[in-house]
């Protein structure tokens, strides 16, 4: 596989074309836990605005991520990463999303080597970004959406800001 193919795996190209979660959704009326984050990649001027709506878990555990939606200008890596992220964390718990986010960061710091199998399995489609970590200039592209997610969830949990 050439360097370029390691970077642009088919799953990434597909998600860059058919993007999930794109288009900001208004929060449901009465939704209490809504958060939004705006992130920029200063090297290229790319931007993303990501919104989450959380709900209390029926069992009183970690809140559930009801919706993820986003809008932005970005390269195929950043948009594919946002699309994959939407699929992975929507309808899951905040605790699972946090764990996934940590694992994805670990993957991006792994210089292109795969993570141990039990970790890699939790990543689902996000595991195909393994090749991105071989291109230091592109790691920020893949992480932009995850940074926005973490920030938006934190804002949703701290409650509405006046």
């Amino acid at each position: 596989m050439s360097g370029l193919e390691q970077l642009y795996q088919q799953v990434i190209l597909d998600h860059a074309r058919e993007r999930h979660g794109e288009g900001l959704l208004d929060a449901d009326p009465g939704a209490a836990m809504v958060g939004e984050s705006f992130q920029v990649n200063p090297t290229c001027g790319d931007e993303v605005r990501l919104r989450v709506q959380l709900a209390d878990a029926p069992d009183g555990g970690s809140p559930v991520i009801e919706h993820v939606s986003w809008d932005g200008v970005g390269c195929s890596i950043s948009r594919a990463s946002l699309s994959v992220l939407t699929d992975l964390v929507e309808k899951g718990s905040v605790r699972d999303a946090d764990a996934l986010s940590e694992t994805f960061r670990a993957l991006m710091s792994n210089r292109g080597a795969p993570l141990p199998l039990e970790q890699e399995e939790t990543l689902g489609d996000a595991a195909v970004f393994v090749g991105v970590a071989r291109f230091p200039a592109r790691i920020k592209c893949a992480l932009l959406g995850w940074m926005a997610l973490r920030d938006a969830v934190a804002k949703a949990l701290t409650g509405p800001t006046a």
């Binding site: 370029l4 970077l7 642009y8 290229c44 790319d46 970005g74 390269c75 195929s76 890596i77 291109f135 200039a137 592109r138 592209c141």
Partner: peptide
Amino acid sequence: VHPHDVGQ
């Protein structure tokens, strides 16, 4: 095509 992808 985004410039980052063109450059790559």
